[in-house]
Design a protein around this nucleic acid. Structure first.
Lengths: 217, 217
DNA sequence: TAGATTGTTAATCGATTAACAATC
DNA sequence: TAGATTGTTAATCGATTAACAATC
């Protein structure tokens, strides 16, 4: 589950790692085996020292002057650091459209995430399967999480139900919550909540447009 | 479209604004009319000076010693700053499950975002309506964007189609892209891309779990 | 008045970037 | 060798936090 030799790594670096990975993977088909931090930096419009420091945090072997980094080693290093090489099991609560989208998205497998079951309070959905995975009634939630030792819970219910779902997750032993409800969850210390903050994204878009049209007035 | 008197505001502050707003809205029902930065800070587990500086960036009237800030004024200020009081029109390309989820999500109205049409290359979806909004073939995309002066494009297609959709959006005159495809888009200067970086979120969750289980070994 | 709360100025902290010596 | 590229050490930058005077 947890990888080995993980030095602490900044949140900023962590956010950039998936970008590096994606970029390296696009290169991987071609004939090149090595790449320099300089090239990566230019392609992704990042500072090259920053790229080197980021890579230093994930690559087993260090880069070599003139030749750069071995692409495959970098990919392995990043994947390992991101936990893509080990599967984490998760459950999702709220199988509306967004919930279904996440529930059925196969891409998460690539990221080491396996959503093993969905839960909803709508009886019409009980025992429906999506991509071969069952939707179950909420009553079965706590017990299943405990029995299967699930650690990750995904919340895709409306905002007003999010806190009670969250509490239920804690009862089920879940310690990391991926929250898509536009709602700040109250959790005790030691519980990790990652808010998928769409309103913040929209705020940035709105800010950009405001600046854009203000400038051009 | 763009609000008035917008001083520059840090990205960090911008991310926190929706949280303040949500918190203030939960208070708004009750009888209190004022609130102190101290109280907000404690409730949201933030530093109180940080809260004051954030609020200073959005509130028309400043707070008063002993009484704090007027809740309604704060709400108005934040909503205005976030652009929630003016509607921006957007189009979405890719009406799969995730696309449908976003397309039909009424909550975006609250955020000042109005998705007026969806586009997909699947003929089965042509002229289907979701929440009274049409899904159209890609052929109509550029023309519609231009005619209606749409500035925001949402990308919910698979990664391998994202870049070509992006290029099409630029052709249609779109200048702000909200990208849900796990893929770094190439765009010219002046175009804003907000990546909804789910892989980065997963990376953080994975990182937390790794640390958690490492510590407890 | 007294003190809770404000806004500001200065100190701290962490991340980014610049400068540079080491090396294949 | 020469020079492209590395990793490190120091400088810069921006955001957070601490200290404090102002005020209702």
């Amino acid at each position: 589950m947890a990888g080995k030799n993980r030095k602490p790594i900044s949140i900023q670096t962590l956010k950039r790692l998936p970008n590096y990975l994606h970029y390296l993977q696009t290169l991987n088909n071609k004939e090149v085996t090595n790449i320099s931090a300089t090239t990566i930096a230019n392609s992704l419009k990042l500072n090259e020292v920053q790229v080197r420091k980021d890579l230093a945090a994930v690559s087993m072997a260090s880069g070599k002057p003139r030749t750069g980094f071995n692409i495959n080693e970098l990919i392995k290093g990043i994947e390992s650091r991101l936990g893509y090489d080990s599967k984490d099991e998760a459950v999702i609560v709220g199988v509306g459209k967004l919930g279904q989208a996440l529930f059925s998205y196969r891409g998460f497998q690539t990221y080491g995430l396996n959503i093993i079951a969905g839960f909803d309070s709508n009886p019409n959905l009980y025992n429906v399967t999506i991509e071969g995975k069952l939707i179950l009634p909420m009553e079965k939630f706590v017990n299943l999480c405990q029995r299967m030792m699930i650690h990750i819970g995904i919340i895709t219910v409306p905002a007003d139900q999010a806190q009670s779902v969250c509490d239920l997750m804690l009862a089920g032993g879940i310690i990391a919550i991926w929250n898509f409800a536009p709602m700040n969850l109250r959790v005790p210390n030691g519980i990790f909540v990652k808010n998928e903050n769409m309103s913040a994204s929209l705020a940035m878009i709105s800010q950009f447009l405001a600046e854009h049209f203000h400038e051009s007035d």
